[in-house]
Amino acid sequence: MTEVNISCVIQVFDNLDELDPDVKDLMQNAIAARDMAYAPYSNFKVGAALLLDNGEVISGSNQENASYPSGLCAERTVIYYAGAKYPKSKFLRMAITAASKKGTTLEPIPPCGACRQAIVEYEIKQHKPIELYFMGASGKVMKSNSVANLLPLVFDKSVL
């Protein structure tokens, strides 16, 4: 038997003011998108903003449905729209923020597993990592230099 140690490196910022101005602006776009989320069932609103290499910023929010599996997370809303509208552009960085009406979310909330898998598909496609910044409603912000950092054993087309 062989044991393999897989690690993840994350940078933690105490608040938005510690971020570079361009990253802070991207997070502000995500916060604005979060406020537009349609989340009447979970009361858990998520916003995401994605910076493309052409300078475009795409933002979106989670969209729920009474038929729960029919909803879509903010991260996938953003990347699928960007992939459809700007298929030749590379994704540089994504900012994500989440807030619950049931309580204050002060800890950073990373993307769910389905979103990590969807985002890593674009990292693989573009042969370039996508920086991720994520936070709760306020407080600390975490940064990962790559989605693969958060999903080290990726499932990709090489296994199909």
Rank of each mutant, 00 (worst) to 15 (best):
C8F: 13
A32R: 07
A37R: 02
L52S: 13
V159H: 09
K88Y: 11
H127D: 10
A48D: 13
D14V: 02
Y41W: 07
K102F: 12
E121C: 07
L132W: 07
E107W: 12
G47L: 04
N43D: 15
V78H: 05
S70C: 09
G103E: 14
A33M: 03
N54E: 04
E18K: 01
V9D: 12
Y80V: 01
P152S: 02
K143N: 01
I109L: 08
L50T: 08
V12R: 05
N43W: 15
V12A: 03
C112L: 02
Y81V: 04
G71Y: 11
P69E: 00
K140L: 05
N62P: 15
N149F: 06
Y133N: 01
G60Y: 11
R34N: 10
Y133F: 12
S100D: 10
V9R: 05
C73M: 07
A32Q: 14
M1Y: 12
D53E: 03
Y38E: 02
L19F: 11
E18Q: 05
L16Q: 15
L92I: 12
Y122P: 07
D35P: 11
H127T: 04
R93K: 10
A48I: 15
S59V: 03
A137F: 08
E121I: 10
N145K: 05
A39M: 01
A148G: 08
S144T: 03
Q63M: 07
V159G: 06
Y122F: 12
I130Q: 02
L153I: 06
A32V: 13
I79N: 12
S67L: 07
K88S: 06
P87S: 01
A32F: 14
I10H: 03
A48E: 11
M27S: 02
A118R: 03
L151S: 06
